[in-house]
Design a protein around this nucleic acid. Sequence first.
DNA 1: TAGTTAAAATTGGAATTACCAATTGGTAAA
DNA 2: TTTACCAATTGGTAATTCCAATTTTAACTA
Lengths: 247, 247
Amino acid sequence: MKNRRLFWRIVDQIEAMISGGDFPAGSRLPPERELAEIFDVSRPTIREAIIALEVRERVEVKTGSGVYVLEQTNLSKADMAISAFELTQSRALIEGEVAALAATSITDEELEKLHGTLIAMEKGDYTEEADEEFHRIIAVATRNKAMLRTVENLWSLRVSNPQIVADYGSVCAKSNQNKILNEHTAIYKALKARDATAARAAMHQHFNRLINSLFDALEAKALEEVRRKASEKRGLYSLEGVLHRPA
Amino acid sequence: MKNRRLFWRIVDQIEAMISGGDFPAGSRLPPERELAEIFDVSRPTIREAIIALEVRERVEVKTGSGVYVLEQTNLSKADMAISAFELTQSRALIEGEVAALAATSITDEELEKLHGTLIAMEKGDYTEEADEEFHRIIAVATRNKAMLRTVENLWSLRVSNPQIVADYGSVCAKSNQNKILNEHTAIYKALKARDATAARAAMHQHFNRLINSLFDALEAKALEEVRRKASEKRGLYSLEGVLHRPA
DNA sequence: TAGTTAAAATTGGAATTACCAATTGGTAAA
DNA sequence: TTTACCAATTGGTAATTCCAATTTTAACTA
């Protein structure tokens, strides 16, 4: 059995203390010199252990201040913090450029595929898939794999962040499918005409309308919240409630 | 510009050497004592850098034997296939929009930080770090986490795709630092003036000049290849070779 | 007494030196 | 040729010193 290096043993012990609640997120670990005494090892060994913890994003090191325990976060948590507004604004700006670039190089075959997605959406078949395919074909038409990758990343956010899924759900309902189809059609026509400026504008319009819909939904939710609270206040002061209160 | 700890700088440099092909997977890094001489730092600093690389699973440490480079599996095949041209074009289009958006919301504090990166580049200190920080501050200034994420993804491609690292290496050499600094300064001034259109144009110019440099480098390489092949053809048909051919 | 500034204390950062533990390669002997 | 041993090399840990950054405390002023 190969010997385990001492600093790795210290890493494990500190991680156990963090996980065990000795040092909650936000708290500060004891100073290096004190940890060296606690664990009866040299200070460089403690430093090496702390660097490993830092790379693992378990702690944050602040020179002159101390070593602080981080929330157990990962990249997906950062993605979770992205709102539907932020995503949609980004898509407007980025996919606007994607559409403009694609207008300069899109092939007849790709246009035919684009048209296929419009047909599918018109039929009401697999509208979300058709939506994704529509944007993906345009990204492929740019002939730029970094652009394609970026569009894929944005779509991935759209379908995996629960809050964004819910927000998009409320503005991409059946009742709005005609609007979306009309906007996709306008983008398609601009691409077919190989008009980069029109394609960019059409894509902007598509997402800006979506942003407005998100605002509308947010306002409706806020009004609903105000009504709910007023209703609670009514219940709080109503005599009916008082009369029925158990002794 | 906040001071970056020395061992992190060494981590970056070693990673660049690995990504740049100096130390292919399976090869052994120079001994700690030698690395300390090469980088002109102390051996504990090297040790700290190597521990970070180990946690990142870039290297494997064998006591008494050496530090060995591990296969790098993070990059997908699709990401490996992205060329420096594609990345740079994407950055031009996307970061142009980022700059325009940032011009509408950038704070004085952020402008000050941006200026700090210009100072660092002027001094010749850690220019790649200052470059990254420059673009990152602008992305943060958009107040849009999806945009920031996109810029981070593009930068990640820039530093982890070996071919892109090599290509950028040849056009971001010391001799071009003044051009880059001038372009960054133009972007900074447009942002300071809160002029979205100028910021977008300045960012486009920055990357378009970079694309042209990449083309120049590619052309030089192609010419070199043509010369090499012509030289081979000359050798193939030269009488000297024929006369000296062994029986 | 309250606010501000400067000094002191504390904490992390880096370097130097020394010695120990593990591995590898070279040499000698069987 | 094979095996054993030794020296050299490489990583691992400790101790000490001094520097850089931040926080806390003390002193001063209004």
